[in-house]
Amino acid sequence: MSEPTPQRFLARVARATFLHPAGLVALGLWIAAHVAVLALAGGYLPFDRPAVAQLPFAVQVAVPTIGMVEVLLLMLVVYGLTRRRVVDIAARAPDRRRAGWEVGLLLTYAMLAQVGGWLLGPALGYRPFSFHVAGTLFGCSVPATPGEIWTWMTYNFVAFALLPYLWFRRRYSRESLNLTSSAPRNDLLVILVVLAIETAFELSAFPGILSLSPRELAAAAPLAFVIFFLGTVLPTMVLIYAILLPRYLKLTGSPTVTVLLGGLTYAAMHLVEGWSLFDTARDTALSLLFVALGYVGPGMIKSFITLRTGNAWVHALGYHAVAPHVVADAPMIGKVFGVL
Rank of each mutant, 00 (worst) to 15 (best):
V314L: 11
A62N: 09
F57R: 11
L162V: 03
W101M: 14
M332D: 08
A144Q: 01
D95G: 15
I333F: 03
R85W: 02
S182V: 08
V103D: 11
G274Q: 10
V272L: 01
I149W: 02
G67T: 03
I301G: 04
R127M: 06
V190P: 13
T258I: 06
F201M: 08
D283T: 06
T309H: 02
T145F: 05
P298I: 10
L195N: 12
A123T: 04
L293S: 10
D329M: 07
I149A: 06
L124P: 12
A144L: 07
L40D: 05
T108R: 00
A93N: 11
P56D: 09
A196H: 01
P298T: 02
A268E: 00
G338A: 11
R282T: 14
V77L: 14
L124K: 05
G139H: 02
L307Y: 01
F206I: 01
P6I: 01
L40S: 05
Y248W: 13
S276E: 13
M75N: 01
P222T: 07
G28H: 09
A14E: 11
R96N: 05
G297Y: 04
A285E: 09
V194H: 02
F160I: 04
F160L: 15
V133W: 04
W150G: 00
V61R: 11
L163D: 06
F18R: 11
F225I: 08
N178M: 13
L245F: 07
D279H: 13
A16F: 01
L166Y: 01
F304A: 14
F225P: 04
V336P: 09
L317C: 04
L239D: 06
F18L: 15
M68W: 13
L230D: 03
A219Y: 02
L55D: 11
V158H: 02
N186H: 02
F157W: 10
E148H: 04
F57I: 12
R171E: 13
L81Y: 03
L40K: 04
W118N: 09
G135I: 07
I31K: 00
L107R: 02
L74H: 00
Y319R: 06
T256C: 07
T306Y: 07
I333R: 07
G253H: 05
L307G: 10
V190Q: 08
P46D: 10
V52K: 03
S287L: 12
C140G: 04
K250G: 10
V87I: 15
W167V: 15
L179G: 11
P6F: 01
N178T: 12
V322A: 03
A134I: 09
V326Y: 02
A91Y: 00
R85F: 03
A218D: 05
V233Y: 00
A110R: 00
G117E: 04
P122T: 08
